[in-house]
Design a protein around this nucleic acid. Structure first.
Length: 196
DNA sequence: AAGATGATTGCCT
DNA sequence: GGCAATCATCTTA
């Protein structure tokens, strides 16, 4: 995966890829692109701050922020200074199931990494991991099985630029979050209906 | 130093 | 579907 390109190009290709960290690996099934200064919904829209600094680094590391007490992670893309990143919203646990279960008790396996906060909890990612580079601390991004059908639609819970269809998800995955709130505006190869 | 905000979750109706 | 919980970060004074 070439993370030197902008997030909008990288995001759909990340679907199906496997993210491994701290004994748990997830197959990515839902992502959103955020395009820095040109994107009013991005944390980087108003420039660099102490919180989003790692977003401005060159692609190949993660940006982790906390929101309402939950951690959320982005895969930073593009050249240094662009602040282009892909929010990882959901995945399916494919490795370290016992470990993931212990971090999220009383949740069905399909939903262990459903939602950005839940995915980070399953992987053991916290704000302290902000800026970690792929290859460091056991953080890995591996090729995997791409979805049969990729659905595209507006991003979830953003108050600005809500109409940009920059959310991509595996139309067949039960781990995709919040599909009810926004309809798909376009669908991939098999034309799958995404929300359920 | 205090108040508003937000790329969320989970429980209640 | 609606809303309260909960908190780091940013804005404003």
């Amino acid at each position: 995966m070439d993370l030197g390109r902008r997030a909008l190009d990288v995001a759909p290709e990340l679907l199906g890829c496997v993210l491994r960290f701290r004994g748990v690996a997830v197959r990515l099934v839902e992502v959103e692109a955020y395009e820095g200064a040109e994107d009013p919904a991005s944390h980087a829209w108003r420039g660099k701050t102490a919180r989003n600094a790692s977003m401005f680094d060159a692609g190949g590391r993660i940006y982790v922020y906390t929101m309402h007490g939950h951690a959320c992670m982005n895969i930073v893309c593009g050249p240094e200074g662009l602040a282009s990143a892909v929010l990882v919203r959901a995945g399916e646990v494919v490795e370290g199931l016992a470990e993931a279960r212990s971090r999220r008790p009383r949740v069905r396996d399909d939903w262990l990494a459903r939602g950005p906060g839940n995915l980070c909890r399953s992987l053991g990612i916290t704000r302290a991991d902000d800026g970690t580079e792929f290859g460091d601390s056991g953080l890995e991004l591996l090729p995997g099985t791409p979805p049969d059908a990729v659905a595209v639609g507006p991003r979830v819970n953003v108050s600005r630029a809500w109409d940009r269809p920059w959310r991509f998800w595996d139309a067949a995955s039960p781990a995709v979050s919040a599909a009810k709130r926004h309809p798909a505006v376009r669908a991939g190869s098999t034309g799958g209906q995404a929300s359920g």
